[in-house]
Each structure stands twice: as structure tokens, then as C-alpha cells.
Design a protein around this nucleic acid. Structure first.
Lengths: 116, 116
DNA sequence: TATAGTGCTTTCCCAAAGGAAAGTGGAATA
DNA sequence: TATTCCACTTTCCTTTGGGAAAGCACTATA
């Protein structure tokens, strides 16, 4: 017999949501993906396009995103060496998440300012 | 004349996304919303439905969610006093976010296990 | 020759997140 | 009377995130 439980079961939703959150956690991952996705492919450009981000954090987050195969780092030989960042195709699958967050954020801001 | 900028502009997407992330930040907010949304309305039930959450964290996150008007705490007088939590209607607007995260998480887990 | 840009790294530091464990006060239950 | 349940709170501690500032190796530009 299964153990009785008073609470309603929701692990089947919570588990995948947490899997997703583990990948895109923190303040910076989605902003970086947005910035790279829009065409910023140089370290400095990405940095300047995201207000407040420091090079240390950007470097670390880019490495994380590479490991998760969402971003591809390319070294182009030549003088000087060029380094570019691009979204991996897999990052396209994040579009619905970004889209829904953007919409919600826009609506939320309106709601909060209306309140005041 | 506007200052020249080499980078592509993406603040209009980044800003609302960050507004949204500021509200649902951390490991626990969305799991809690999912749990309450599915019918868990007592503190202990919510706690037991979310693996790994401690009462301290749950109490703090519930307060945050109340402040953001996503969750409503109700005290029902009587002997003993009963306390229930429910989603505010506003929390329904999070459904697309949760849905897209869930889908992405499911797909991501498949992708990662296939890789191995 | 001096300065600026590129893509970072390094150090130092602080605050927030979060885990473990115990406790609390009242009421219900055995 | 003892134990349990409920909804937390409290304390202590560790980890993580992240900011500030400086530096570095290389190249390009003035």
C-alpha cells in the first residue's frame, strides 16, 4: 500500500521547472542570451549592451552557457585574434520562455505603476 | 546627435525580462506557486509537496509572494485557528511562464540523457 | 612613443541565499 | 498526562552571487 499523503502531488510539474531553472538561473543568463541572440558577438559589445554587468560575471556566465551548449565561442585566427560568441541552435528553444517572461514583465510593470 | 554604439540594442527585451526575474527569482518561488496552484493550501502540505524545502525558506518565500500579490494568506478564526494559502488571480498570468519552463525542462532532460 | 581597445583574469570583499537543527505556543488527540 | 499537529521562528553556519577595481598580454591607432 502506498503511504498516505495529505498534500496534492505536483512533482511532475516542479521537477522539470527546476531542471529549467537550474540552467537559466541567476540575474544574467537570459539577458546574455538575449544580447547574443540580437547580434552582439563580441565580449565588449555584449558587456556594453547589458547595463550593470561586470567582465568577471560575464566571463563566468558565458562559460556556463557554453557548457550548457547554449552559446558557442569561436576563435578566429589572424592579427589580431578575434573571438566571437553566437547562440547555438539549441538556444532557440528558449524563445518561448523569454517571450513569456518579457510579456509578463511588461504587464507587471504596468500593474505596479498603476497601483501607485 | 546620439552617442555612437557598436553593440546591438536589446534593452527593450532585457528590461522586462529582468523585471519578471526579479519577482520569481530563486529556486523556490515557482515551485511554491505550482504547489499552491495545484491545491496545497496548508503550510505543512506545501512544505511536504516540495522536496527539500525547509520551513524557514518556505515562510520567507510565502511572505515575498504575498507582497507581490501572487499568493493570499487567510486566517480562519475558530478553535484552532486555521491558516490557508491560495493563489491570487494575478498568479494565473504566470501560467505561460510555468508552462514554457516545464516543457523546456522536460525536453532538456531528454536531451541531456540522450547525450550520455 | 603614448594611448586606446579587446578579452579577459585576479584579488578582495560583501550581502543574500539557503541548509540544519532545534524550539515555541497553543490546541487536539490518545 | 503525554504526545502530536500546526505554523512557524530562531540561531548558526556555509555557499553562492556578484560588485569594485586593478591588471595583463596583445594589437592598433594617433
Amino acid at each position: 500500500m502506498a503511504a498516505k499523503k495529505a498534500y496534492c502531488d505536483c512533482i511532475e510539474t516542479i521537477k522539470p521547472v527546476r531542471d529549467a531553472l537550474d540552467v537559466i538561473n541567476g540575474k544574467w543568463k537570459l539577458p546574455i542570451i538575449i544580447s547574443v541572440g540580437v547580434g552582439n558577438d563580441r565580449f565588449t559589445d555584449i558587456q556594453e549592451s547589458i547595463p550593470g554587468i561586470t567582465p568577471k560575471v560575464l566571463a563566468k556566465e558565458l562559460k556556463d552557457l557554453e557548457q550548457h551548449r547554449l552559446v558557442v565561442r569561436t576563435v578566429i585566427d589572424g592579427y589580431p585574434v578575434k573571438i566571437t560568441y553566437q547562440l547555438a541552435q539549441y538556444a532557440d528553444t528558449l524563445t518561448p520562455i523569454i517571450y513569456s517572461l518579457k510579456n509578463w514583465g511588461l504587464n507587471h510593470r504596468k500593474k505596479v505603476t498603476d497601483r501607485a
